[in-house]
Simulated assay, not measured.
Amino acid sequence: MAPTAGAEHVLDRDEMDPGVRALLRRKAEKVAAHATYSPIDTADVENLLRDFFADESPRSTVRDVQRMGGGASKEQFLFSLDDAPYVLRLDPIETAAETDRRREFEVLNTYSTWVPAPRAIWLDESGSRLGQPAMIMNFVAGVTKPTAPATGPNVTGLGTSFPQDLRAKLAPQFVHTLADLHRVDWRELDLPSFHAPAPGTTQAALWQVNWMSRVWRDDHVQDSPVVAVVDRWLRRHLPVCESPVMVHGDYRTGNFLFDESTGRITAILDWEWAHLGDHHEDLGWMTQRLYMTHQGGTDLVCGLLERDELIEAYERDSGRKVDRATLRWYEIYNAYKSMAITLATSVKAARDGANHQDALLSWLGPAGYRFATELCAMLEEEG
């Protein structure tokens, strides 16, 4: 892949999505002011919810509050409001992925009309009412992986295998839903917190590199020469994005729910990374080796379909072309992003006692070395 011609701006590390710049500034202020974080008690959550709904819906009754498992970023609680189930997502001080609750709220409210997703209903952006920045959305039933026999490790989405009949049902929906997401014209929607990179330029790619470069710079606990080499390569080979789309940012197995009896996908989850950018970014995320499953002598993307199968199905369903060189750039970028999340932010949050999932975040840390190894191999292939 040849270096981007005339890209004098590639070293401008301050050129960034304005919303992300504000998010990173808030994060720095929050981290500087924090003490050690303790998980919030379920009884305290119940009291906060009762006070919240005393204003929002005075005649409603909060009951059956319980902590939900999983997640390396948010504290999540299931509760009933007048017998209807809802999910509360609360921000700890630091997370594996620092993101914006308002953006997540907006994208869920808008895109749940177009793709299967929970609907966000209440938002406490500052945390002034629920103690921490928070969002409440409706509960959607489903599982993230087959329940029997147990498959894959405990962290959902890594090494997940599906029986052939279930895979045949899920794979087409998985691809078609992503195509639907990218097909929606975001310009016609109410998304005031989102900022679009200029079409026909390399700005979409540069914004992403600058985001992760800043995350690594702020959060790393140990220097890595790999990061410097990869950062330089990415900047020299920025691809052009002709037409920005809504990028999910974490589209993979483990982040969708399905009904096991029918094989129907019921919801796409974890929209916190959503932003406007290049459609290749979502494809480059799911095709990382971490989300591959080796099954029956074949490597399956997210345990569902072969890489070439995925690309052909996506092109057919979306009407968009997949440029292999651009896809490769985003595969390298996403490995860089994953290295920053695991080896920098997760390790720092665990070290500083700033998250309720310190054991899981510590477990994620060594995965960063796997991404570093893969980055070295991919760059060697690029020459």
Rank of each mutant, 00 (worst) to 15 (best):
K74I: 01
Q357V: 05
H294R: 11
W329G: 00
L327V: 09
Y336W: 04
A33C: 09
L81G: 14
I265N: 05
G70L: 06
L49P: 04
L24Y: 11
K321T: 13
G159C: 10
T326S: 13
E75P: 02
A134R: 05
P192S: 05
A267N: 03
L49A: 03
L310C: 12
A97R: 05
Q66K: 12
P58T: 02
W122P: 07
L130C: 00
T287K: 04
H195W: 14
G284S: 04
M339G: 01
S261C: 13
D124I: 02
I341E: 05
R214D: 09
A335L: 15
G69C: 02
A349E: 06
W273T: 15
G319E: 01
T298D: 04
L379R: 12
R232F: 03
L130H: 00
P244F: 09
T201G: 04
N334C: 05
D100V: 13
Y251D: 00
L310F: 10
A96Y: 00
L234G: 04
T151N: 05
E242Y: 02
T345I: 09
P163K: 03
S224I: 02
N138F: 10
R328V: 06
A28I: 01
E104I: 11
D308S: 13
L88G: 12
L305R: 13
T373P: 00
Y336M: 02
G303K: 09
T373C: 01
P199A: 10
D55M: 08
D12F: 08
D12Q: 14
L375E: 12
E381C: 15
T342H: 14
D185A: 15
T373H: 07
M137T: 09
G353P: 15
P92I: 11
S126W: 00
A150D: 03
E306C: 07
V230N: 05
E46D: 03
A204D: 00
G277D: 06
A96D: 00
A340N: 02
P197L: 06
T99Y: 14
W285A: 02
W216S: 01
L375G: 10
A274V: 11
L191S: 03
W233N: 11
A179Y: 05
T202I: 01
I136E: 09
S243K: 08
E281D: 06
K321Y: 01
H294A: 10
M378W: 05
T42Q: 15
E104Y: 10
R89T: 10
I332L: 12
R25D: 07
N154R: 07
I341N: 06
V347L: 06
T266K: 06
T262G: 12
V229P: 02
A274P: 06
T293Q: 12
E106F: 02
E315G: 09
A134I: 05
E260K: 08
A354F: 11
G159Q: 09
E188H: 10
L178Q: 09
D14E: 14
K337F: 11
L360P: 00
